[in-house]
Simulated scan of single mutants.
Amino acid sequence: MMVVVAYDVNTETPDGKRRLRSVAKTCMKYGQRVQNSVFECFVTPSDYLILKHDLAEIMDEMCDSLRYYNLGSKYASKIEHRGRQRHVPVDGVMML
């Protein structure tokens, strides 16, 4: 299933900057960055639970924000895009 993860991490402190890097690194394990703080993650239901748990362990709920958009397995018709694409479509063919 496709899950979009969007986050806003307060980076006014060194600890906040560390959390920001940790959130991005964790999201990269499950998907690809499509905007600065937005990842498209193609995950199984169990991976989704692990991803949410791992991110909850990193974030500071008093000053950070995480949003999850579960687009399901038929996500292709739910995504519209305009402009330069920063990623390779998950189900697209990659040629080298």
Rank of each mutant, 00 (worst) to 15 (best):
S46I: 09
L96D: 07
I50T: 14
L20Y: 12
S22F: 03
N10A: 12
N70A: 06
V3T: 00
M62K: 12
G31N: 03
A56T: 14
L20K: 04
N70F: 05
S46P: 09
Y30F: 03
K17N: 09
Y68H: 01
N70D: 12
L96H: 08
H87R: 11
D15I: 14
V43R: 02
Q85P: 07
I58F: 06
K52E: 15
V5D: 10
P45A: 01
G16E: 09
R33C: 08
A6M: 15
A6Q: 14
V3I: 08
V38F: 03
V90W: 13
I58K: 00
T26L: 06
Y48D: 07
R84T: 05
D64E: 12
Y68C: 06
M28N: 08
S73F: 11
H81R: 11
R19T: 07
Y69V: 15
Q32V: 06
T13P: 09
S22M: 13
R33A: 02
M94L: 14
T26M: 11
G83M: 07
M59D: 01
V5S: 11
R21L: 14
R82K: 02
V90Y: 03
E12G: 12
M95P: 05
V5Q: 04
V93Q: 04
L55Y: 04
L49P: 02
K78Y: 07
N10V: 08
Y30S: 05
E80F: 14
E61H: 12
T26W: 03
M62T: 15
L51R: 02
T26H: 06
Y7F: 13
R18C: 11
D47P: 00
R33F: 00
Q32T: 00
R86Y: 13
V5C: 10
S22R: 02
P45N: 09
D64I: 08
Q35V: 06
H53E: 15
R67K: 13
Y7G: 04
Y30H: 04
K52W: 11
P89N: 13
S46D: 03
E80N: 10
K74Q: 14
V90A: 14
N70T: 09
C27L: 05
D91K: 14
V43Y: 02
P14V: 07
K25M: 10
K74D: 15
D64N: 10
E12C: 14
L49D: 13
I58H: 03
D8V: 10
M95R: 00
E61Q: 13
D8H: 04
V38W: 08
R67T: 12
E61L: 13
M94K: 13
G31D: 07
K52R: 15
M62G: 12
T44Y: 04
Y48S: 08
M28E: 07
T44H: 01
E61Y: 11
M1I: 02
